[in-house]
Each structure stands twice: as structure tokens, then as C-alpha cells.
Design a protein around this nucleic acid. Sequence first.
DNA 1: CGGTAGGGATAGGGTTCT
DNA 2: TAGAACCCTATCCCTACC
Lengths: 194, 194
Amino acid sequence: MGAPKQKWTAEEEAALKAGVLKHGTGKWRTILSDSEFSSVLRSRSNVDLKDKWRNISVTALWGSRKKAKLALKRTLPTPKQDGNSTALSIVPVGNDEGKINSSPPENSGESPRYDASKRSITSLDKIILEAITSLKEPRGSDRTSIFLYIEDNFRTPPNMKRHVAVRLKHLTSIGTLIKTKHKYRIASGSVTTG
Amino acid sequence: MGAPKQKWTAEEEAALKAGVLKHGTGKWRTILSDSEFSSVLRSRSNVDLKDKWRNISVTALWGSRKKAKLALKRTLPTPKQDGNSTALSIVPVGNDEGKINSSPPENSGESPRYDASKRSITSLDKIILEAITSLKEPRGSDRTSIFLYIEDNFRTPPNMKRHVAVRLKHLTSIGTLIKTKHKYRIASGSVTTG
DNA sequence: CGGTAGGGATAGGGTTCT
DNA sequence: TAGAACCCTATCCCTACC
């Protein structure tokens, strides 16, 4: 499947760092809602931000065997006004070096430059789109709803094989499918999902 | 001096396969905790299981995702359930019970519920059509191909949740979906390639 | 109920050994 | 050169706790 594991781009990381500088650590939802970062971080959740920050902090404190546990606690609670300099001592704003972080020079704006990650839409993707469509929620559906829908409607039962056979026979009988020499094809005029 | 590379025994490998069959891939810790396998696999970690499974899959690769489509067009070996060949069908096809979909979702979600009164069958038809469409075989696809396609794309329930999450993020990242406050909606003009 | 901190599991790239 | 076993850690998930 496409991309299990959404690797953080340099741009997203920069946005996160800027967000922490502006709002402080632990204000993940706030950062996410800030229009200054929301577009770049639109595919990330508040928890993602927290996790990424933890990870950044760990690698930033490289040299001492401190662990992630300290990293988060070390950071500033929520700078109301003070410490712009304080932040520096703790926040991994420090620029990376010796890291394989090569931001494409041609991009400085925030245009969706999703490299070759496009690919064709997988089957599961279509199901997802169908789920969202079927749920018909005006503001869209959340992950739980989508999952529940799929779980209830598309879950593969243990004896799926048998059921597939039964359904194939049925679909053939009602003319949706045409069977020829053990091969099934969709009768013209039939509609698939989506 | 360390561990001289502990080679996997046939027994361990069998236990791993059985474990995957029972719990699905990606449930390494669960497999390890299962008393049915814990004794045999007692010297292995969850990461070991994952690594071993990867190694197995790499060479066995007949029922695996990536190549599924290619493989399918090449007359696939009717999935036999021996246990001697190298991990092919990962899907819990094993049991034959006359029951369908007794899913005990670990959720009692909230969020605008849709009416979950129509159970699988109707939706299974959609999947079937989906499979046939996706397989794009000029003369149609046979039952085995269809079934394997479905298995391959919707594998085991335990992983479904994760897969959905991953795909949601991906779809969001490429602009097909738009995420707002944990809600996903379809961007106008989304594609639906086959 | 929504958000955060933390613990811990998984995925995938790398490395070492054979 | 390849494959198997193992290591590293970014990312993701679950749960307790406000």
C-alpha cells in the first residue's frame, strides 16, 4: 500500500518548531489551529505533533544519554510572554547538521509539492471514499466513524471465500455479472462503487 | 560475543505462521502473548517476529500486496492450506464456520452513527464488483482471483483500523481528502481511478 | 468530551553475519 | 551477491489522567 508511515517533511518539521516557539510545548491543538501552520500541518493530528516533538527533542539532546522522558519535561510549559531566549536553550530549533534533511531549494512557499507520493488510488482508498460519501456528514466524518463504517460493511468474515462464491452466483443470476468459463465480468451498464 | 545469530527452527516458524493466521499480521505482541505459541517462541521478541515474518514474506511473496495484481494475472496457485509451504495466504481462511460477521468491535463509538442495520452481504457485492473492476482482466476474473484480491486488500480485521488510518492520512496528504478537526471530507474533484 | 503525557508497539531502513 | 538475523528509531497507537 501507498505510504504506511507518513514521514515528516522538512517543511512540516519547521512548522512544528515555529509553532512551539510561538505557542509553547504542550499546546499542540493550538498550534494545529493556528492558520500560520494549519495548512502545512493539515495532515497531522495534535498527537502527531506531540510525538514528533518528543522525537525531535530526543535527537536534539544527542550526546547525553537522557531519554525522551526528560525531553518533554525539560521544555517550557507555556511561554506567555517571556523567554524568547529561554526557548533556545531547550527547544530543538537548533539547525540540524549531519542530518539527512535536505529541503528542496526550489520551495520556500507552501505549495503542495507532494513528490511522487500520488500513485493510483488503492482499493481501500475507494472504500474509504465510499464510506465518507455514504455517511453523508455535512462536515465530513472522523476516523472512528469511517472505520466503524468499513468495519461493519466490509469486514471480511472468516468464511469469506464461501460468501464470495454465493454472491458471485447471485450477481450472475440477476444479470449484474456475466459468467463465461469460470470468469466473471461486469455487465455493461452496471455501476461500481463510488 | 553476543548472540551468535539464533536461527529460526521449523517449529518456531510454524508457530509464527499459525500465530499470524490466528491474530493477523502486525499483532506480534499478541502472538507472543498467546499461550498457544508463547512456549515455542519464548526466546523471540515481538520485533523478532516482525523481522522473521518480513523475511518469509519477501521470498514467498505470492499472496502479498505489492505483487498481487501481477501475480493474479499469472494464474495463481489455488491457495492450499497445508502448512508446509512458505507463508502464502496470511488471511485467516482457516476456519469454516457457518457464521458470518459476528464482529465484536472494540468500540462503542460516538460520533454521528450511521444506522448499522444492513450487514455485510450487500456491501460484499460492492467489493466483488470493485475487485473485478480493479483486476481489469479482459475476459473477467475467476473466483480464486476475486477472492485473493479481496483477501489481499482487506486482510485481517485487526489491521484494518491501522490501514484505514494510514490511508486517510495519505489521501489527505495528496489532497483527495480534506481534514478539518479530525473530520475528513472529500475534496471536490477527487479522482477515482481504477 | 477533548487534550496531553507517557508507555509501548509496529514499520521500515540499516547493519552484520553467513 | 544474496538472504537471514538483528539493530535503530521514526511513527503510530493505546491508556491514564486531567
